[in-house]
């Protein structure tokens, strides 16, 4: 049991962070809070990938005479791309939230659902 926890500690923390983010996404009604949760979930996935690429005794994947083992460079490349994509999705999400605030006057999900249930389509000016 101790061996399992210590041997896979990075992965366990990645799961914990992902679940914290997931909880924020489904349980909080504030839209900005949901996006913060999404960000935490994304970084948890990044942590998982980078941990997979780490090799015991490996050095950074840059050519060096004294290096015996290198870490796996492929997860680093994939995560570099993923970080930029995650910022793009965050930016679009915030722009949508600003439009929702303009249209409904609130960014709380339960209140928006209630307003829509009363037949109000939103003021798109």
């Amino acid at each position: 049991m101790v061996e399992l926890i210590l041997g896979k500690f990075n992965y366990l923390i990645a799961i914990a962070l992902a679940m914290i983010g997931f909880y924020a996404m489904i349980a909080k009604s504030n839209l900005i809070k949901k996006i913060i949760g999404m960000n935490i979930f994304q970084t948890a996935v990044f942590l998982f990938y980078i941990s997979i690429g780490k090799v015991h005794g490996g050095t950074a994947p840059i050519v060096w005479d004294k290096a015996v083992l290198y870490d796996n460079p492929l997860p680093h490349v994939l995560i570099l791309t993923a970080i930029v994509v995650s910022v793009s999705t965050t930016a679009v999400a915030f722009a949508l939230i600003i439009r929702i605030q303009k249209a409904f006057g609130t960014i709380e999900e339960d209140k928006i659902i209630e307003i829509k249930r009363n037949g109000y389509k939103g003021d798109m000016e």
Partner: peptide, 27 residues
């Protein structure tokens, strides 16, 4: 610390910098 140096500086500039600016702009 995990030897992912390229990822580290992208995270420091893009993750810590731009995301925080976007969040403050949205708030």
């Amino acid at each position: 610390n995990l030897n992912a140096v390229d990822v580290a500086f992208t995270e420091a500039s893009v993750g810590a910098g731009i995301t925080t600016v976007l969040l403050i702009a949205a708030i």
